[in-house]
């Protein structure tokens, strides 16, 4: 038996909206410690890694480890039927072929339930080592969203360079070139408005903007985003979802022409 209850059902709605364009399907791996998902896009260029902790839910029970194969567009269709203020409960019997989603309105006067058909998905898990990064940058998620959106209208790829001067995003295309530099800035009183650059060594890497732009669909989940960069390694774009957990996006770099 698996059962997980989340009072802020809107978080689940936002999460699936953030993933569904990038990955069509994946396994929700549930265990007594929580819910995890690792899924690559169809071209194996980027990966979504989601980890929600058991103690982040109002109620969590998982008697037996299970991999629940989810089609994200279908899950999205069901979650669109949940109100933004609804409490959502996920339920499945052991080895079930369906996941039940129950929505309760905040004043408890409307209760609905939907069954999502589960899929059997053979997924390849990638072993992602814990490592030190050359540069870790925390910035407002709205700022990241704006930069990648703006640059996507100019070019296809972005060179991200982190130095002690700041973090610079550069692109070029048919219309011309664009550079946006953010400096380390801890002046704003609210931590979520600060830009914090933790630099061990300067690093510069090139990435496809299309994917970075897609990751920004997670902006409604968190006020801050963390970018982690190391020479010749994938970038990590990470959103902390309050006390519930985190979603991380990994994107392989482009080799410079």
């Amino acid at each position: 038996m698996f059962e997980a209850r989340i009072t802020q059902g809107a978080v689940l709605k936002k999460l699936v909206e953030a993933l569904k364009e990038l990955v069509t399907e994946g396994n929700f791996d549930v265990s007594s410690t929580g819910l995890q998902l690792q899924a690559m896009d169809s071209s194996h260029v980027c990966l979504v890694s989601l980890a929600l902790r058991e103690d982040g839910f109002e109620h969590f029970r998982c008697d037996r480890n299970m991999a629940m194969g989810i089609h994200f567009q279908n899950l999205s269709k069901i979650l669109k039927c949940a109100g933004n203020e609804d409490t959502i409960t996920l339920k499945a019997e052991d080895n079930a072929d369906q996941l039940t989603l129950m929505f309760e309105s905040s004043n408890q006067d409307r209760i609905s339930d939907f069954d999502l058909k589960l899929m059997s998905i053979e997924s390849e898990h990638l072993g992602i080592p814990d490592q030190e990064y050359s540069a870790e940058i925390k910035m407002p998620s709205s700022e990241y969203q704006r930069i990648v959106r703006d640059l996507t209208s100019i070019g296809d790829t972005v060179l991200i360079s982190a130095t002690k001067e700041g973090i610079k995003f550069s692109t070029s295309g048919d219309v011309g070139t664009a550079n946006v530099t953010l400096r380390h800035n801890t002046t704003p009183e609210k931590p979520e408005e600060q830009t914090i650059i933790d630099l061990k060594e300067p690093v510069a890497l090139t990435f496809a903007l299309r994917y970075l732009n897609n990751f920004a669909k997670a902006t409604p989940l968190a006020p801050v985003v963390k970018l982690s960069l190391t020479k010749d390694l994938p970038i990590v774009v990470e959103y902390q979802i309050g006390e519930l957990g985190a979603v991380k996006f990994y994107l392989a770099p482009k080799i410079d022409d």
């Binding site: 690559m40 071209s43 194996h44 260029v45 980027c46 990966l47 390849e124 898990h125 990638l126 072993g127 992602i128 080592p129 296809d156 790829t157 090139t206 496809a208 390694l233 994938p234 990994y250 994107l251 392989a252 770099p253 482009k254 080799i255 410079d256 022409d257």
Partner: peptide, 14 residues
Amino acid sequence: LPGQQKLTSFFGVT
């Protein structure tokens, strides 16, 4: 995209 690497060349399948 030309020059785009795949994640599987960085992280092994477990």
